[in-house]
Design a protein around this nucleic acid. Sequence first.
DNA 1: GGGCGTTTTTGATCCAGATCATGGAGAGAT
DNA 2: ATCTCTCCATGATCTGGATCAAAAACGCCC
Lengths: 249, 249
Amino acid sequence: MEAHLPAQAAPISNLSPCGGGQCASVCAECRVRLYAVCAALASDEIHELERITQHVSLPAKAALFHAGDEAQSVYTVTSGTLRLQRDLADGRRQVIGFAIPGDFIGLAMDEHFGFSADSLTPVNLCRFDRQAFARLAHERHGLLGRLHDFASHELGLAQEHMVVLGRRRAEERVAAFLLRWRERMARLTGASATLALPMGRQDIADHLGLTIETVSRTLARWMREKVILDVPDGIRILDQDRLEETVAG
Amino acid sequence: MEAHLPAQAAPISNLSPCGGGQCASVCAECRVRLYAVCAALASDEIHELERITQHVSLPAKAALFHAGDEAQSVYTVTSGTLRLQRDLADGRRQVIGFAIPGDFIGLAMDEHFGFSADSLTPVNLCRFDRQAFARLAHERHGLLGRLHDFASHELGLAQEHMVVLGRRRAEERVAAFLLRWRERMARLTGASATLALPMGRQDIADHLGLTIETVSRTLARWMREKVILDVPDGIRILDQDRLEETVAG
DNA sequence: GGGCGTTTTTGATCCAGATCATGGAGAGAT
DNA sequence: ATCTCTCCATGATCTGGATCAAAAACGCCC
């Protein structure tokens, strides 16, 4: 099972300060501000958040943190995709989700992370000291409210995913995944025919409680049947109705 | 599949005001106050919560609300057990959890409920108008913080359950369920050898993504092997280590 | 371009758990 | 005490997706 060992821990840290003008250095210029928790703060309040913000980047296929690590920081993703997963002792793993720009990592505000986070692509993040962030959330009421909105939204998605994992057949799972991923990407990039899939087949399988073979076969069949089209680093959805029918049962 | 149709909707409502002194009429006497969201409020603040509280009860096997219903109220469970579930169009269902005393129902504070709630036993609840509760949460900072703590705790449990549903074998699922249920009950009643199981086999199966036969066979085997003992309305765990080993893999 | 590790595809076979089928055990109701 | 209804147990059989086993298709580095 070498295939999906977590990206190896960096000697000290995979993170480097985000330089070279590739990150918005101020929130006012941030492309994901309105999607992120940060939208809770008015322009005059956002400076307080900026004071505790570090812009950091992570190369592709690197660990941001491991399950059980002390949660010194929490993060907002500003670019790239991460994979969030929990592992069993014997190597089985469950990908609990993928984090994309605008997502907040560390909602639980817990002492320790309950899952691991690894970058799938190069990633830029706003890093906040957890304690300082928690303090700010308790001072600035809107921020706490928005954190709670994010958490309860996530909770709803998690419950929906329980249905997928507990009661859906393989084909339905893959269809549901593609449609939801497309929806999330659409929020960021606008509706687009081609759908980038930064995660590998194994990641999709581990997200859906399937094997890589089943995911591969399902996608291959849909390609044969012209439901989707293979494009580099993703797919193009040709027959969305067909996928929706599959999910509806 | 008549077996687990949702309890039929009441003509108007299954709820009745809680009378006859069976509920604590004031928070100060509430047995679950310290476990519930209410613990966020100091004794001088709790009166504001009491002002918007209605004590209601529900008989066994009755619907509290259905998925998609407008969420006019949110609830704290003070006694009894409820089953929370999501249904697919063709009758498959996923039990997303069981609510016990101290639990808060309606964390999402969403316009509409994302799941159905049915009582398994007679239930007593504190009912809050959702809007009034939300308003209070935004005034009394601690309450919102505690709501968020509850939501993120639930999120962690939901993620753990994803691992169960996505990656665990049948036997591991049942063992994990028994141990977690015992843990939750222990918080309420103190450590006890006998474990009440107010939910039926079908409910457990639908919670774990299994069939009733698989659950039944697994429990039957453990009874034969003296891992558990059958008692009326529940079981007694004789060999907890064995269950823990099963979960550990 | 060619070698090499990694990921994906595809085929053959297997098996854990689903499905089908039946009998039994309680709990009410009359 | 018998009927009915619901839930649970257990045996027999089936099957969707897992597992096993190669190839093929990628990068990617030199």
